[in-house]
Structures are given as C-alpha cells and as structure tokens.
Amino acid sequence: MDGTAIADPRPSLMVTNDDGIDAPGLRFLVDLLVAADRYRVLVCAPDSDQSGVGHGITWRRPLSAKRVEIMGATAFAVSGTPADCASLGISGKLFVGTIPDLVISGINIGSNCGYHIVYSGTVAGAREAFLYGVPALAISYNWKEGKSNVHALRLAADACLPLINAVLNELKTKTYPEGSFLNIIVPTDVANHRDASIRMRQLKQENHVVPKEHVRRLDVGLVDRSTYRQKASGRGIGHRAKKSGYCAKDIGVAESTGRLGNRLQERTMCRRIR
C-alpha cells in the first residue's frame, strides 16, 4: 500500500496507539521523531479511540487502512484495534517491504502499570509486535486532572527520546534483552523530572506472589546519586516506582501457555527523579 520500498539506512520506527491517530500524544511523538531526522518514521494507528480494548483483534469484518498525511512520516489510519494496527504494520504488506526495527505504542493519556496492562490497548499494541518478534515499547503519561495539560505530552515525548535511542543502540549491539518488551510510565510532573538515572530490576512472579529472593538488581551501566529500594510485593513494582517519583518501565513476558496470571516475568527499569 505504501507504493514502493524505500532504500533508507536509518532505522524504521513504527508508531501506534489506542487513543487514535489524531491523538496529541501520538502526534507529538511522531513530530519529535521526524524532527530528529535519525529515523524512518511509520505510523499505523486506529482511526478512532480504542482505549481499554486490551488485546482484542478484529476478525468478523475486513480491516481498512486509509493513508493520512503527517509531515515527514508514512501514516495509515486503520479501522481496528491497536493489536490490529501493530499486526498489520509489521506484516511487510502495509509498508511494502519494510518491517519496523522498533514499534512504539503511545503516548497514552493516563498511566498503564501493574495489572492495568491487561486492559490497556496501548500496551497491547507493543505486546502484539513483541509476540511476532519485533522489539516494542509502550509509553504512557501519568495524566492527572487539574495538574496535567497537553503541553506535558510534548515534554513526555522529549523525555522518552533518550530511552528510544538507548533501545536502538542495544538492538544494534545485540545487547537488548530477548523475550521482553518495555512499558514506560512517564511521571506527571515531567518538567521537573530531569537529569535522571536508570535502575533496572528483574523479578519473577508466580501466582501473584513475589518472594524476596527472586528480586535482584541488574547493572545498566549508568551511575546515579540516589538509591531506590523496592520491597517485593504482589501489587507490582511499577505502581510503587511511580508513587516514588520514578518513570517505571514494566516489561511483561507471556510464556508459551499465554496465561499471564499464572506465570509472569516482569522487569522494571526506573528513572529516578532528582
């Protein structure tokens, strides 16, 4: 549908979401990626708001994809769910001959952490790409009524750009953790959440119980000036990190059984705010 494949040495990033292709979070992120001039930017997003649809797919009716003009990007609006969009976008059919190097779902208006990831269309867009072997990120902004405004979404996109570049670098050097996708939560007061450091933790959750001995710190190679100690709990490390002023990235990995409730591996990377 995209006409002809374009020979472009830059990495291909595909952006999707669940708020719809006209949502400000997606548009700010796409504008930022285009302005960086370091990526080939592709967009495949729902043509209407699909918030809360989870990992639903369309199968009783055909999907349609309509070309949308977004300066500097190749974009399509799809009559389906975020999972539909991700599946179509990575198929090599919509963007002829191109399979994205990285799928980014967001930026969602509202936090998606802990068990909310089961219901989130934003997370589902990233998960769908992950299930087919394409690296993926979900990005959500912790919107608070009375405190947040649309401009904060632009700041959230700017805050996530270094993380996107870090993932691309790890993919290039083959150091990106296999069998995982990242769920990034940007704090509400993003304007004051600068000069951040990174911590990564990995925990194994079985039947919603997280023994302390299963929690370990992973060295990400960045040194910070503060520490964050996470008490193991079944509530979810992402929720506790966000409450403590972190940008938490919950990485959920479904095993071959597909039953997230029984066995779930979760890695969490936290950006400490100073």
Score class of each variant (00 low, 15 high):
Gly3Lys: 00
Thr4Gly: 05
Ile6Gly: 05
Ala7Leu: 10
Ala7Tyr: 03
Asp8Val: 08
Pro9Gln: 11
Arg10Tyr: 03
Pro11Val: 07
Pro11Asp: 09
Pro11Met: 09
Ser12Trp: 02
Met14Leu: 15
Met14Val: 07
Val15Cys: 15
Thr16Arg: 10
Asn17Ile: 04
Ile21His: 02
Ile21Phe: 08
Asp22Pro: 00
Ala23Arg: 04
Ala23Leu: 05
Pro24Ala: 12
Gly25Ala: 10
Gly25Ser: 11
Leu26Tyr: 01
Arg27Leu: 14
Arg27Glu: 02
Phe28Met: 10
Phe28Tyr: 15
Phe28Val: 07
Leu32Gly: 08
Leu33Val: 01
Leu33Glu: 02
Leu33Cys: 01
Val34Asn: 05
Ala36Met: 05
Asp37Val: 00
Arg38Ala: 15
Tyr39Gly: 06
Arg40Thr: 13
Leu42Ile: 07
Leu42Pro: 07
Val43Asp: 04
Val43Gln: 03
Val43Lys: 04
Cys44Gly: 12
Cys44Ile: 05
Cys44Tyr: 03
Ala45Asp: 02
Ala45Tyr: 02
Ala45Trp: 01
Pro46His: 06
Asp47Tyr: 00
Asp47Trp: 00
Ser48Thr: 13
Ser48Tyr: 07
Gln50Ser: 13
Gln50Thr: 11
Gln50Tyr: 02
Gly54Lys: 08
Gly54His: 06
His55Glu: 12
His55Arg: 13
Ile57Asp: 00
Ile57His: 00
Thr58Leu: 06
Arg60Gln: 12
Arg61Leu: 01
Ser64Glu: 15
Ala65Asp: 09
Lys66Val: 15
Arg67Met: 09
Glu69Ile: 09
Glu69Cys: 05
Ile70Arg: 08
Met71Gly: 07
Met71Thr: 11
Gly72Arg: 05
Gly72Val: 08
Gly72Pro: 05
Ala73Trp: 12
Ala75His: 07
Ala75Tyr: 08
Phe76Leu: 08
Phe76Glu: 09
Ala77Gly: 13
Val78Thr: 03
Ser79Thr: 15
Ser79Tyr: 02
Gly80Cys: 11
Gly80Asp: 11
Thr81Arg: 02
Pro82Thr: 09
Ala83Thr: 15
Ala83Trp: 12
Asp84Thr: 11
Ala86Lys: 08
Ala86His: 08
Leu88Ile: 14
Leu88Cys: 10
Gly89Arg: 01
Ser91Trp: 03
Ser91Tyr: 04
